[in-house]
Simulated scan of single mutants.
Amino acid sequence: MANSTLVTEFFLEVFAETWELRVLLSVLFLLVYLGSLLGNLIIIIVTTVDHKLNTPMYFFLRNLSILDMGYVSVTAPNACINSFTNHRNISVAGCATQVFLFSFSASVEIQFLTIMAQDRYVAICKPLLYPMIMNHQFCVQMTLASLLTSLILASVHTFKTFQLSFCQSNVVPHFFCDIPSLLRLSCSDTFNNKLLLLLSAIGLSGSCFTFIAISYVRILSTVLKVPVKGERGKAFSTCVPHIIVVNLFFCSGAYVYFKPPTISEIVEDMTLSVFYTIVPPFLNPIIYSLRNKQIKEAVKKVIFRFFIVE
C-alpha cells in the first residue's frame, strides 16, 4: 500500500487559522465527544443491568450505543488534538486506518438505524406479530449481517482508495481522512472509485433510507388513526426527532460525498461533516433513550444500587 503512493504522510485541515477560534471549537468538540461517550455508556450499562429491558428494542439500542462510542471516537479526538496542538500530519497507514474505521462505522450506523425503524414499525403497526418477527434469533442475525456487510464494504473501499497514487498534494481538505477528500488528491484515474461509491450509495444508503422513510410513513399513518390525542402526541414526539436525526445523517453525508468537486468549499464540507460524524452519536442517546420512561427508571435504579447503597 505504501509503494502505491508518492507521499509518506498527509496533512489535515483545521477549522480556523486563528488559535483562539481553534481552541474554542476544540473545547466544543471535546464537550460533545464526552457527552456522547457518557450518554451512550449510560444506555449500555442500564440495558445490560436491568433485565426488564431485555427486549429487541433495547437490544438494538445497546448495539447502537456501542457503535456510536466507536464511531465518534474515530474522528472527534483526533480533530480536537489537531486544533489544540496544530499537529496536522497523519501517516498513510493512520489515514488508511481512519478511512476503514469510519467507513465501517458509518455503514453499520446506517443499517442499525434501518433495523430500529423496522422494530418500531412492527411494534406500532403489527403489535400482535411483534414477538414472532422480532425474535432474538432474528435480532442477532441482523446484527451480524450488518457487521459483515460493513466489514466487506469498508475493506473494499479502503483497498481501492489506497491503491491510487497521491502525487498532486498531501494536504487533505478535511479534518479527518475520508474517501472524497483523498480522491481529489489522487493523480490516478478515480472513475472506478467514484463508481464504487455511487453503487454503494444506491445499494446500501439509498435502500436503507427508502426503507426508513416508508417505515415512518406507515408508523405516522397508523398513529393518526389513534383516537386518543395524548397517545398521538406521544408517538409524534418520539418519531419526529428520529426522522430529524436520520435526515441530518443521510442528507449531509450525501451532499459531501456526491456533490460535484467544482463547487467544493472546504469549510462548508467540514461543517456539514460534523452533522454525520459527531452530532448523531451525541443526539442518539437523548432521542432514542433518555426521553424514554423505562430508561429513566432504569438509570435511577442503577444509581441507587451502585452509589446510594454503598
Rank of each mutant, 00 (worst) to 15 (best):
D119W: 04
I124F: 05
H242V: 14
P260K: 10
S186K: 05
V302T: 15
L248V: 06
Q294N: 10
Y130N: 01
N82C: 10
V240Q: 08
S237A: 15
Q163P: 00
I263G: 10
Q111M: 08
S188L: 04
T97E: 11
N63W: 13
K300G: 09
L144Y: 09
F166G: 00
A96N: 00
A298Q: 10
T238E: 14
C208D: 02
I152V: 15
C251P: 04
F176S: 01
N40R: 02
Y71E: 07
T190Q: 07
E310W: 11
K293H: 11
D269C: 11
S215D: 02
L38K: 05
L290W: 09
A213W: 07
I303N: 03
A298L: 09
R120E: 06
P281A: 01
L61W: 15
L37V: 05
S91C: 06
G203N: 08
C167H: 13
V72A: 12
I287D: 03
G35T: 01
L290D: 00
V32G: 05
R184F: 05
V299A: 10
I219R: 12
N284P: 07
V7E: 00
T97I: 13
S146E: 05
I295N: 08
L220T: 00
P56C: 04
Y288N: 14
R62G: 08
L144M: 10
Q168S: 14
L38D: 05
N54K: 12
V122R: 00
A145G: 02
F162E: 02
P131V: 00
L224A: 15
E310S: 11
V32P: 06
F307L: 15
P285N: 00
T18A: 02
F258P: 05
L148G: 06
V228M: 06
A145R: 00
P280I: 09
Q294I: 04
K52H: 11
S215V: 04
F11M: 13
S289W: 00
L164N: 04
I308E: 07
R120T: 04
Y276K: 12
L53P: 07
Y130P: 03
N292Y: 01
K296H: 07
N3T: 03
F138W: 13
L164V: 03
S237F: 11
T85V: 08
C208K: 02
S237G: 15
P56S: 06
V72G: 09
V46I: 02
I219T: 09
L224S: 15
F307N: 14
Q137S: 07
I295H: 02
L182Q: 03
Y276H: 13
G230A: 04
P77H: 00
